[in-house]
C-alpha cells in the first residue's frame, strides 16, 4: 500500500513537471518558428515578404527534442555514474543540452537566411542576439523538467530502461505533444491574423504572414507573447496528461493480471479519449456550422 501511495505521489509530481515542460517547449518552438509553421516563414521571402521572424530550422520538434532530452538525460546519467548529486547531475545535463540547442538554432537561422539571398532576405543579426537566449531559457526549463521526470521514473519507480533511453523517448513525446497541440495556434492563427478567422490558409495567401506588429515590426517575441497565453498551456496539458496517465495506469494496475492490467487500462484510456475526441469534433461541427464540401474540380 505504501508503495502505491509513493507511486501516486511520484505520478502527480511527474505530471506537474511534464505540464511545465510542455508549456515551455511549445513557447520555445513558436518563438523559433520550429516545426510546421516554419514552412511559411521560409516561404515568405520567396513570395516577396521580407520579415524579421526567427527561422530556426532544426528538423521537426520530435527529433529535435528527442536529441535535447537525450543529451540532458545522457549527460546526467554520466555524472550520476561519477557519483554526482542527482539534482546537480540533471542541471549539468540540461546546461549541456541547452548549449547544443542554442548552437543548432543559430546555425539554422544563418544557414536558411543566407541561402535566401536571391530573394533579398537579409540576415538580421539582432534577431539572433535577442531571441536565441530566450529560446535557450525556455528550452532549459523544458529539458530540465523532462529529464527530472525521467529520473523520477528511473530512480523512484524503478523503470527498467536506462536514463538516456527514457530521455530519448520522453523527449520525442514532448516534441510531438508540442508540435501537435501547440503549433496550430501559431501556424494557423498567429501567422495569419490578416486573414478571415477560420478561413484556413488559401494558396494565394501562402507566405503572406503577418510581419508588422501592434507597434512597429513583429518579432518572434510577439509570437511568444501570443503563444504563451494559448498554445503553451494547451501543450502543457497535453504532455502533462500523457505523462500522468501513463504513470498512473502503470502504478495502479501493474500488479493485476501479471502486468496485463496496465495494458488493458491503457487500451481503455485510449478508447475513452477516442470517444471524447469524436464528441468534441461533432459538437464543434454542430455549433460552428457544417464543413462546406470542397468544390469538385479537375485539378
Amino acid at each position: 500500500m505504501e508503495e502505491i501511495v509513493l507511486g501516486i505521489g511520484i505520478t502527480a509530481l511527474a505530471g506537474a513537471l511534464a505540464t511545465v515542460a510542455g508549456a515551455a517547449e511549445d513557447t520555445e518552438s513558436d518563438i523559433g518558428s520550429q516545426g510546421d509553421p516554419n514552412s511559411q516563414v521560409q516561404l515568405a521571402p520567396q513570395m516577396g515578404y521580407i520579415h524579421r521572424i526567427f527561422n530556426k530550422a532544426v528538423s521537426g520538434e520530435p527529433p529535435a527534442y528527442g536529441l535535447w532530452c537525450a543529451i540532458g538525460a545522457g549527460v546526467a546519467w554520466a555524472f550520476l555514474q561519477l557519483n554526482y548529486n542527482p539534482a546537480l547531475a540533471i542541471i549539468l545535463g540540461s546546461i549541456v543540452a541547452v548549449f547544443i540547442q542554442g548552437i543548432y538554432c543559430t546555425s539554422g537561422y544563418l544557414g536558411r537566411t543566407a541561402s535566401l539571398a536571391k530573394f533579398k532576405q537579409p540576415v538580421y543579426i539582432d534577431i539572433l542576439k535577442s531571441l536565441t537566449s530566450v529560446t535557450m531559457a525556455h528550452a532549459f526549463v523544458a529539458i530540465f523538467c523532462t529529464t527530472a521526470v525521467c529520473y523520477l521514473m528511473s530512480a523512484a519507480l524503478h523503470h527498467p530502461f536506462a536514463l538516456p533511453l527514457l530521455g530519448l523517448i520522453w523527449g520525442i513525446a514532448l516534441g510531438a505533444a508540442g508540435s501537435a497541440s501547440g503549433n496550430p495556434f501559431y501556424g494557423k492563427e498567429r501567422q495569419y491574423q490578416n486573414q478571415k478567422f477560420g478561413a484556413g490558409v488559401p494558396i494565394s495567401a501562402s507566405g503572406n504572414i503577418v510581419r508588422y506588429a501592434e507597434a512597429g515590426q513583429r518579432s518572434s517575441l510577439d509570437n511568444g507573447w501570443f503563444t504563451t497565453k494559448f498554445a503553451g498551456p494547451a501543450s502543457g496539458i497535453c504532455f502533462g496528461l500523457i505523462v500522468f496517465l501513463e504513470l498512473w495506469r502503470t502504478v495502479l494496475f501493474e500488479e493485476s493480471l501479471a502486468g496485463w492490467g496496465a495494458v488493458i487500462a491503457g487500451i481503455v484510456l485510449i478508447l475513452i479519449f477516442t470517444f471524447i475526441d469524436r464528441w468534441i469534433e461533432v459538437w464543434g461541427r454542430k455549433t460552428y456550422g457544417p464543413y462546406t464540401e470542397p468544390e469538385e474540380s479537375s485539378s
Partner: peptide, 26 residues
C-alpha cells in the same frame, strides 16, 4: 546504460542538420 541512444541521436541530427539548415537557392 543506453548512452548509445544519445550517440544515435547526436549523429542523426548532426547528419541531417547541415543540408536542412542550408537548403535554398543560394
Amino acid at each position: 546504460g543506453a548512452a548509445l541512444a544519445v550517440i544515435f541521436f547526436l549523429g542523426a541530427l548532426a547528419l541531417q542538420h547541415p543540408f536542412n539548415a542550408c537548403l535554398g537557392p543560394n
